[in-house]
Structures are given as C-alpha cells and as structure tokens.
C-alpha cells in the first residue's frame, strides 16, 4: 500500500486584507513532501516563504485549500488540534533562535518535552545537548552563550522530541558565515541520523542545494527547480 506523503498541500490560497486591499500571498499552491525528504524553499524577501512555512506547520490557516500531515486533515483542525499535531510530530529551528532568556540551556531543551509530560524529558534533553556538543554548558543561560551556541541549543531542542518533521526558518540568518556553516552541517547530520523530514526556508542558494529538492516561491506560486 502506498504510504501517504508526510506533508500534502493542495490548492493553497492565502490572502490578507490591508486597508480594504486584498493582497494575495499564495495562489493555488500545491506541494507533496514524502517521508524523509529534505526540501528547501527559496524566494526573494516578501515572496511568502514564511507564510507557506506557517501554513505547513499549522501556525496559521489558509484562506482556501488544505494541508494534510501523514494523510490526515491538518489545516481543517482547530488551533488546539493543530497544536496537538505539532507537539507530536514537529520540531522548529528559528532564525532568531527563540530561546527563553530566563531558562538554562537544559531547561530550554526540556520545554517541549515537559509540555507533553515526557517521563524522560531531562535525559533526552541531556542527550540532545551532548549531540550538539554542549554538554558542558547545560546550566548556562542564553545570554552566556554565543549566537552559534544558542542555535545549537535550539537544534537540540528541535530534535529532543524526535519529531517526524523539522521546520527550519532561516536557521543561519543571524549568524556569520563560518558559524552558519557549522550549524548547517550539524543540522543536516542530525537530520540524517534521525531520518526526519526537513522543510528548510532560506534565501541562501548554497544552503538550499544541500537539500534533495529545491522549490522557488515567486508571485505566490511554488515551482520545483533543479539543483543549481
């Protein structure tokens, strides 16, 4: 029996109203991502990349169209329903790291696990931090860590929950090129090890080419491209 795609977006439209003007962000977008795929979405600033990512992650709902996760309706669910799927299946890495400043590195990694009352939250978190090479910094606060170290904590947090899908939104956007490269290597290695489906939003072509599939978002339309 053919397995359902991990992520299936069908005829996605997304419009916003700004001072009585209808602005179309996405127009009839279709996307199918199989289990274990690594896809990159590129596009110019304001092309709707973050909007698409937010729809795929259930952080927002489309004006029309649908998103399915593992063959089950996703965009039709209410906010709490979508949150439940995110808790079960998704991990996130953000451009601005999004670590809580009042929590230590370990506490930040434990947070998504604690929300699910995971019995081995601390153990899994320590393991994840070890994998990103920060086991000696577990009690440090974000302000005591460099940008690269903070993003490594964020990566550890994303993988600690063993998600099926990892969404990475400009993960190297706030880092210098050397650190960014290190982060990307770490991200892809951990992704490969975990066998997670990766959806990466970036403006960096070189980074995008590391993914198996490449998509370009232009005028609200998504086109698959060959590797550049």
């Amino acid at each position: 029996m053919q397995q359902s795609p991990m992520i299936q977006a069908q005829d996605l439209h997304y419009e916003i109203t700004n001072h009585d003007n209808q602005i179309r962000i996405l127009s009839g977008l279709n996307l199918s991502v199989e289990n274990g795929d690594q896809i990159a979405i590129i596009g110019s600033s304001g092309s709707g990349k973050s909007t698409l990512l937010s729809l795929l992650a259930g952080l927002d709902v489309p004006t029309s169209g649908s998103v399915q996760i593992k063959g089950a309706a996703f965009s039709d669910l209410n906010e709490d329903g979508r949150a439940a799927v995110r808790a079960r299946d998704m991990g996130f890495v953000f451009q601005s790291f999004q670590l809580l400043p009042a929590l230590t590195a370990l506490e930040n990694v434990m947070l998504p696990l604690q929300l699910k009352s995971h019995p081995r939250a601390e153990m899994l978190s320590l393991e994840a931090l070890d994998k990103v090479g920060l086991s000696h910094r577990v009690q440090h606060y974000p302000k005591q860590l460099s940008g690269g170290e903070q993003q490594r904590v964020a990566i550890a947090r994303a993988f600690a929950t063993q998600p099926s899908i990892l969404f990475a939104d400009e993960p190297t956007g706030n880092l210098d090129s050397a650190t960014g490269q290190m982060i990307i290597d770490l991200l892809f290695n951990m992704n490969k090890e975990a066998g997670t489906t990766l959806v990466l939003v970036t403006h960096d072509i070189k980074l995008a080419n590391r993914c198996k599939r490449l998509f370009k978002l232009d005028n609200g339309v998504l086109l698959e491209m060959a590797q550049v």
Partner: peptide
Amino acid sequence: EERVTEATLLRVFGASRKQ
C-alpha cells in the same frame, strides 16, 4: 513582550491555549 514570545513559543511547540 517576554510573555507574548513565551506564550507563542509554547503554542508553536504544541501547547494548547488551555495549557
């Protein structure tokens, strides 16, 4: 600001509004 970020982050990670 801190609470908005915190609450939103929790919801991104899958916390329901109730939680």
